[in-house]
Amino acid sequence: MKKMLTKDFYKYILTISIITIVFRISLSSLLIIETWNFIFIPPLGYFLLMFLSGWYFGKKDYEYLPFNDIGFRYNLSTFLVFFTISYSMFFLGQMSKYEPRIIIDYTFLIWGIVLTLHLIFYNKVKSNNIKGLPKEDIFD
């Protein structure tokens, strides 16, 4: 996995970290001032920006080196970034009263299950790789 950390992958992590911080702050701020009419904007914007970041950096990354990890690096890094920021904000007392810890815990649990399944599939695919590259694509 260490060998699969490319420049574009680091750029992706940096980008999603910024997007996640902006999302968390904007969502909590709107909830604190109870602006219900605009509450859909942060999650919608977050979803769109995260999707575009994954698509853009994932494509660039694949063009650089065609790693065959069925997106597991991206899922794992997004998981780590999202929960590091979310729990940090929670423990620093930066969240609104409408964002109890149980919501983050449940999200962690559900996403954790999905991530575990992803890991199982990734380990199956990995056996066909040499240093992360699919055998049939190395000498194409």
Partner: peptide, 10 residues
């Protein structure tokens, strides 16, 4: 370039 990047990686 793409082939060389793969060989360097390997």
């Amino acid at each position: 370039y793409r082939s060389l990047r793969k060989y360097v990686h390997l």
